[in-house]
Design a protein around this nucleic acid. Structure first.
Lengths: 209, 209
DNA sequence: TAGATTGTTAATCGATTAACAATC
DNA sequence: TAGATTGTTAATCGATTAACAATC
């Protein structure tokens, strides 16, 4: 495979390309040069060409890039050509918010169930997805080929969920709890540390005086 | 002020220091060397010393760092020694989830109100905070010295909110909508692009095969 | 063909790591 | 004092930008 040893910096820019290319498509713009794309996306034209060339020569000299083709290539690179079964652990406000997000589903992330330990949530249906007891967690995820778990528990519960995940076939964790989970190396962990993010806001507020 | 021209890479590590130092404090650990901190936080000892020295010599040769002092210094650097008035725009699932997060409040981010355009939310109280009509947005934020707005609207509504913010005294936006807002340079924008984050998960899943 | 724009190499810039003198 | 560990400079590594030959 060509796309080995790509730096994370590049990977983290890919979703932004994906997003902007979708916008261009929706506006029926068929071709774009790295220079034009630069002016709307904010990366330098040079960086755009470098980034894309990590994965292949998607452009054409003298012409630029075909928007539709490039969008489809980046979708492929991001693994969006197939579906992923996911479950949410933690049926509180955040878990419910994520369950109601339709955009994840549209991209291929199929929510199969939610889990909680609190009896008050049992049987509840959120956006047609049922909340199950954590008792059934391991059997459910293995039987339903769940590949990704969104952890929306409290800080206290998160590592416990991570431990249980490691005994299943789940491959990735999207973690919203404010903690760095300890997991085997072969499990992918992507963190959304909201507090960390918010604290940079207060930092910059202080600096901006 | 000493802390000028600090790179964003350093800034984005600060909340993690803050988090781990809090943990050490809670465990009654009084001193720590960069080497020990390295082993728990995962940055190199060298990087830790470099990072901290951007802001001052907080350590002591032969001893290490006093955990309590360092925690308090980093709190100061992050602007956590005072309160910030905040409001949420968008009283949907995500807005409500954020309103229910007590940890933000504990750090000094005081939620004063929520806003929405949908009449069904009007008057609703979430965690003791009332949902108001967007009609009152500008007057409310100016009268209540609101400095930060959390944008939890749909993609479609977000830029409109950003435009209205620019006519007020609000200084920063914490944006959860999947769009890059166009605002004046003096407004701080911190994005939480959940989809971008999730797409890196599918990327790595594909790579890990 | 001439003009435009990529793909790609080379140059620059910045961030991380290593090393060690200063010093508690 | 001797040992430990910082603060800080220098070396390395990696990422971004610039430049331009290749080519559509």
């Amino acid at each position: 495979m060509k796309d080995k040893n790509i730096s994370v910096a590049v990977i983290r820019r890919l979703p932004k390309y994906h997003r902007y290319l979708k916008e261009l498509l929706d506006k029926d713009i068929r071709r774009i040069s790295s220079k034009e794309l630069s002016s709307i996306i904010g990366f330098t034209a040079s960086q755009i060409r470098q980034d894309l060339n990590n994965f292949g020569g998607f452009g054409q000299q003298g012409y630029g890039y075909n928007v539709e083709d490039l969008y489809s290539e980046i979708s492929k690179i991001l693994g969006l050509t197939r579906k992923y079964n996911v479950v949410i652990v933690g049926a509180g406000n955040l878990g419910q918010a994520l369950a109601n997000y339709t955009s994840f589903g549209r991209l291929g992330f199929d929510l199969k169930a939610m889990f909680d330990i609190n009896p008050k949530f049992m049987g509840l249906k959120i956006n047609d997805v049922e909340v199950l007891d954590m008792d059934k967690f391991e059997s459910f995820v293995n039987e339903n080929d769940v590949e990704i778990v969104y952890i929306c528990t409290s800080r206290a519960g998160a590592q416990d969920v991570a431990d249980r995940i490691q005994k299943t076939n789940v491959k990735a964790i999207w973690n919203f709890a404010p903690i760095d989970l300890k997991v085997k190396e072969d499990i992918i962990v992507e963190n959304v540390h909201l507090i960390d993010n918010l604290l940079t806001v207060s930092y910059f507020l202080k600096e901006n005086l």
